[in-house]
């Protein structure tokens, strides 16, 4: 799957978590800009894992700040699983 397509799916997932926030882009910071608490972030990550059929290791989660960071992690894990 292309990075852009992954990004779009992540953004649509975030819109579901925060329907009141309009502008979510690749550079949006998931925790700070969207004010998601740690439980909401965890639920969101679990839903992303389901959607892309991957498991994101916790140390990788810690490094994710923006939507694009997450998209790159998803892309990397998806490719690794197909390899």
């Amino acid at each position: 799957m292309q990075l852009s397509e992954i990004r779009e799916q992540i953004i649509s997932g975030l819109h579901q978590a925060r329907p009141d926030v309009r502008d979510i882009t690749g550079t949006t910071r998931i925790v700070q800009d969207l004010e998601l608490d740690s439980v909401a972030v965890m639920d969101f990550i679990l839903s992303i894992e389901d959607r892309f059929d991957i498991s994101i290791p916790l140390d990788r989660v810690a490094d994710i700040v923006t939507v694009d960071d997450l998209a790159r992690v998803v892309e990397g894990l998806g490719n690794a699983e197909r390899a």
Partner: peptide, 27 residues
């Protein structure tokens, strides 16, 4: 404990054996 060690750490949904199964299947 998970953070102190060097294993790769993933989570399954709380008390959800099906989610656990899915994650082990990926591994």
């Amino acid at each position: 404990g998970a953070r102190l060690g060097h294993a790769e750490v993933i989570r399954f949904r709380h008390s959800d054996p099906d989610d656990l199964y899915k994650r082990l299947r990926r591994l």
